[in-house]
Design a protein around this nucleic acid. Structure first.
Length: 426
DNA sequence: TCTGGGGTCCTAGGACCC
DNA sequence: TCTGGGGTCCTAGGACCC
């Protein structure tokens, strides 16, 4: 059996932990640049504020219902997530952290436990340790655990725990579940299935397997197997190294000046280099992109992108900055108001672990002294920024000037910044 | 008149997830 | 005026190899 533990309205719950006056009130958290709703309290859902909907279209509702609105505070949410996951890891030797607010627990060997009582104990402990309410779904496959979790959240009578144990449990659950709510069936496949009169998860589970394999491919076939109780998706106990890493942002006001764009791209590049080092990885490709708003009139739209090979894989900020500079110069067109830009690094290989070097055919052997030295500089830079806060030491081109994103309703970094807490006190 | 069989790698596009 | 960010996997098609 698998358990899926999911934090309720996670970002909203994080804000409520440190501001209990928000409990019982409608609360929303906005995406970066204060664009869309990415978390809503139950009260906010009831008002009709949609997931992913642009905030400016609902301004009248926000005012009328006195909704508490927050900018995304990912520093806080990331730290709270780590605390929740730490607690949950105490309940099973097998844990897969699936996203910032969800994890799977393997329950193999827990057959002698009363699973429902165990799940309730997990909920109580997570809430006591972190203040975050969670819902728990348990089933014989990951996909069924997901389905159970959905039931636990939707049906208040279950008080946050649902278990699919018997054939009859599963049959009833699938019958009451719309096919688009199945994990792995997105809006495109859902529309395709509805056209063919397949409306519930149960309908889907009973389709001829070869037909599913043909039209929904191997991923759809796995979903069907999993719904029928045959486990295809295993727990990923060790997170595999990332294949690509991206840092991108929308701008509060459009950017037209090349120099301003250089500053933004330098910042994104520095962040990518840092993320690479944190992963003990190196990249061999770097892509820069800059684009106008997709909602602008067609003749004012532009999507520029350029990829540069780095030669030797690297996670050295200085080297990556040079490549990014070249890429930006090649893709930049004057006369456009750019709304968003970003940097993607790919072709990622392991590296950067002290004493563990991947030698290439064309690399001097041993590693040139210069490379060792810049490695040490990067290490020192990361240590300083970890101790004194991100951006304390940075490259001269990494300037946060005109291109800043909109972020007007940011809560304090309660768990990671002493200064923020002192400000709250005074 | 006649021209095989078995592969890999890369990329773009489309689907999905939170 | 104002519409997020960061990922994964799969497939098809083209280029290439012997």
């Amino acid at each position: 059996m698998f358990a899926l533990v999911d934090c309720n309205n996670f970002y909203v719950s994080c804000e409520r932990v440190f501001n209990p006056a928000l409990c019982g009130r409608p609360v929303v958290v906005l995406s970066n640049n204060d664009g869309c709703f990415i978390a809503r309290s139950e009260e906010a859902k009831a008002i009709g504020l949609g997931m992913g909907a642009p905030a400016f279209k609902s301004e009248h509702l926000l005012r009328r219902h006195k909704v508490a609105v927050y900018s995304a505070n990912f520093t806080l949410y990331g730290d709270m997530s780590a605390r929740v996951m730490n607690t949950l890891a105490g309940f099973s030797p097998d844990i897969e952290i699936y996203s910032i607010d969800e994890c799977f627990l393997g329950l193999e060997g827990f057959g002698r436990f009363d699973l429902e009582e165990y799940a309730r104990q997990i909920r109580r402990t997570a809430y006591r340790n972190t203040g975050i309410p969670v819902s728990i779904g348990i089933g014989p496959t990951k996909t069924l655990a997901k389905a159970a979790n959905r039931m636990a959240k939707k049906n208040p009578d279950l008080q946050g725990v649902a278990i699919l144990r018997t054939e009859a449990d599963i049959h009833a659950a699938l019958k009451n579940m719309a096919v688009e709510d199945v994990w792995g069936i997105g809006h495109r496949y859902a529309a395709f299935l509805h056209q063919r009169d397949i409306h519930t998860a149960l309908d889907f589970s009973r389709l001829p397997a070869p037909w599913v394999r043909k039209h929904l491919h191997i991923t759809g076939a796995r979903v069907q197997e999993e719904l029928n109780g045959r486990s295809c998706l295993v727990l990923e106990l060790v997170r595999p190294a990332k294949q690509t890493i991206c840092t991108s942002r929308s701008f509060g006001t459009p950017v037209s000046a090349f120099e301003e764009m250089q500053h933004a791209v330098a910042h994104f590049t520095s962040k990518c280099a840092f993320k690479l080092r944190r992963e003990h990885s190196k990249a061999s490709l770097l892509t820069v992109f800059a684009c106008t708003s997709p909602f602008a009139p067609k003749e004012e739209r532009y999507w520029g992108t350029r990829t540069i090979g780095l030669g030797e894989p690297s996670n050295d900020t200085i080297l990556l900055l040079a490549a990014a500079e070249r890429a930006l110069a090649a893709l930049f067109r004057t006369g456009y108001g750019y709304k968003k830009a970003g940097v993607i690094v790919g072709g990622i290989v392991p590296g950067g672990i002290p004493g563990q070097t991947v030698l290439s055919l064309f690399q001097e052997d041993p590693v040139p002294e210069k490379e060792v030295r810049t490695g040490l500089v990067m290490e020192a830079l990361d240590r300083l920024n970890a101790r004194y806060g991100p951006g304390t030491v940075r490259m001269a081109s990494d300037i946060r000037s005109g291109w800043k994103q909109r972020q007007e309703r940011l809560s304090p970094h309660y768990t990671t910044s002493w200064n923020d807490i002192i400000e709250v006190k005074t």
